[in-house]
């Protein structure tokens, strides 16, 4: 399987992101960030709470826009894309895995995985085949008809991984993917992410506090007070 949209080259130049009104209440989540992520890279982002990790992930995944500076996907500025184009890019090119899973509670595991494909108008038979295959790949074949509240935390996160892979994205973004899991489930989820990244040759960016999770990445980014304080390569 290959990504619908290939792994992108992402460049951030002098990216700033601030929240709130100018003055004392203003929060500078990111300050002058320059970063390039090559296609297929495995990147961990570490840092203390409030240092801007999630904001960076949101900007990479087109969930948010910088206050100033530029984010480019394959050389094209994200700011020049319309909201519809950015949504389309998220749908086809980005797979999100959230700390709190964010499965839709009214849909079964199967329907959660199927949803991004439905939005892409993938034919029904293809949707069903692929959703079933993905759930089997994450070890949840027998639990397809279960609702999120009937699943354990580890199972929910595996469904979230399957959903993130539904449209074969080139970029996988994981925000504290093991934050709510016990060590055994955390290891299982990370092994799964390692495997699917390698199989699909996708870019994987993982925000984590967990040194064991970070150690799996090939590149390590440290953030402090909205700035990149370290950027090193190697396991």
């Amino acid at each position: 399987m290959t990504a619908t949209v290939g792994a992108p080259r992402i460049e951030l130049s002098q990216v700033e992101r601030t929240y709130g009104r100018a003055g004392a209440e203003q929060v500078h989540a990111l300050r002058g960030v320059d970063l390039t992520i090559a296609p297929g890279e495995y990147l961990s982002v570490e840092g203390p709470s409030g240092c801007g990790k999630t904001t960076l992930l949101n900007l990479l995944g087109l969930l948010d826009a910088p206050t100033s500076g530029e984010v480019r996907w394959d050389g094209r500025s994200v700011g020049s894309r319309t909201d519809r184009e950015r949504a389309r890019l998220r749908l086809t090119g980005v797979g999100f895995i959230f700390q709190r899973f964010y499965l839709l509670p009214t849909l079964t595991a199967f329907e959660n995985v199927e949803l991004p494909m439905r939005a892409l108008r993938t034919p029904r038979a293809e949707r069903q085949r692929r959703a079933t295959a993905l759930l089997e790949e994450v070890g949840l074949g027998p639990r397809q008809r279960a609702y999120p509240h009937q699943l354990s935390g580890g199972e929910e996160q595996r469904v979230a991984v399957a959903r993130a892979l539904a449209n074969r994205p080139g970029l996988l973004l994981a925000d504290e993917p093991t934050g709510e899991l016990d060590s055994q489930n955390a290891t299982g989820v990370m092994e799964l992410l390692d495997r699917v990244r390698a199989d699909r040759d996708a870019t994987l960016v993982v925000v984590t506090h967990n040194p064991e999770v970070a150690a799996r990445a090939g590149r390590h980014l440290a953030l402090l007070d909205g700035r990149i304080s370290a950027d090193r390569r190697g396991a």
Binding site: L91, F96, P116
Partner: peptide, 14 residues
């Protein structure tokens, strides 16, 4: 709101 946010995060169009 959260379910809408999730759908939009996944890229479902407006």
């Amino acid at each position: 709101r959260r379910a809408i946010g999730i759908r939009r995060a996944l890229g479902l169009p407006r």
